[in-house]
């Protein structure tokens, strides 16, 4: 297969990878500070997508005349509103989840795992009850959808948009984690909660904010991903599995581990799709097995809570 034929697959992989990285980063922030795996991360991702759908398709629990006004707003504005508002709307779910998880801090990490698994089930059922089981498509405004021709190939414009927004979101997270006092506290807290408390940092509050940040990242990724994946109740599982896989692969506690791990997974999935499209998702598991067989702590990992 020539390079030109591979190019679209590489681009697909890149977009997928960037979005995976974004999901994985939120997952890891929570893992790093709470020392808990949040299996409901994917459900927050799915909620983001559903809220975005409700906003974009103007299916909201509002009086009919208000709704008519909202439906009259150009799609580009509704879409922009969804990108901003959906994460905000999902944030309270993250708050509730954090509140529940408090009971599991300091206990066997198994309980956190079981709890978030249960919450994931509940949210998925909640979605089924509210929106039913059919698949939805998130309408994408004409301005950023469609295709264009470059190098004799047709490219989907939205993929570039999605990749761009993922990069922008990750850049914001990078700045928050690496360049602000908040980020410094988060990193310190991940290493030693006693030091944080000795420094007079309110760990409880810090955990809440980190959880909200992680939740919003998941929801944001859900909005961006929705036009590519479609919206269906179990999309949460489709997202959370790659997320933890990337964390195990990239190594716990490393920003670049998650970013590069995500890209790697995306590229492998994209590239294998060029040769065996049916089996492309299997490639990421094989990649995982390959990496952890030779590097038990992943590519960039240090000793971590996962090894308790």
């Amino acid at each position: 297969m020539s390079f030109m034929n591979l190019l679209p697959h590489l681009l697909n992989g890149l977009t997928l990878g960037l979005l995976f990285s974004l999901i994985a980063l939120g997952f890891m922030l929570i893992l790093g500070l709470m020392e808990q795996i949040n299996l409901a991360h994917g459900s927050l991702f799915a909620l983001g997508a559903y809220f975005a759908y409700a906003l974009c398709a103007a299916r909201l629990p509002l009086p009919p005349d208000w709704l008519a006004v909202w439906a009259g707003v150009p799609l580009i504005w509704r879409f922009a509103a969804a990108v901003v508002l959906a994460p905000v709307l999902v944030a309270p779910f993250g708050l509730i989840l954090e509140r529940l998880m408090r009971r599991t801090y300091g206990r066997d990490p198994l309980y956190g795992l079981l709890l978030t698994f249960g919450v994931a089930m509940v949210i998925e059922e909640l979605i089924r009850v509210v929106w039913g089981t059919p698949d939805y498509m998130l309408p994408v405004p004409r301005e950023i959808s469609g295709g264009f021709i470059m190098l004799d190939l047709i490219w989907s414009a939205y993929r570039f948009w999605a990749a761009g927004m993922a990069v922008a979101a990750m850049a914001v997270v990078w700045v928050i984690v690496e360049r602000t006092r908040f980020g410094a506290m988060v990193k310190a807290g991940a290493h030693d909660s006693e030091i944080v408390q000795a420094l007079g940092i309110d760990l409880t509050k810090l955990r809440v904010w980190v959880f909200v940040l992680g939740t919003m990242m998941a929801a944001f990724a859900g909005v961006i991903m929705a036009p590519l994946w479609g919206i269906r109740p179990h999309m949460g599982v489709d997202a959370v599995v790659p997320a933890f896989l990337i964390i195990v692969l990239g190594g716990v506690g490393s920003f670049w581990g998650a970013a590069i791990g995500g890209l790697l997974v995306g590229m492998v999935v994209g590239l294998s799709a060029a040769y065996a499209s049916e089996w492309s998702m299997l490639s990421m598991y094989l990649l995982l097995l390959l990496v952890v067989t030779f590097r038990a702590r992943g590519l960039f990992g240090k000793k971590s809570v996962l090894e308790v």
């Binding site: 795996i37 198994l110 933890f244 195990v248 299997l282 809570v305 996962l306 090894e307």
Partner: peptide, 24 residues
Amino acid sequence: HRRGIYYALMTIAFGQIFWFVAIK
């Protein structure tokens, strides 16, 4: 050689592999 959360995550991955193969 694993335990705890790592064990859970690796078993999820293996479960997904088998499931995926069964579908495909």
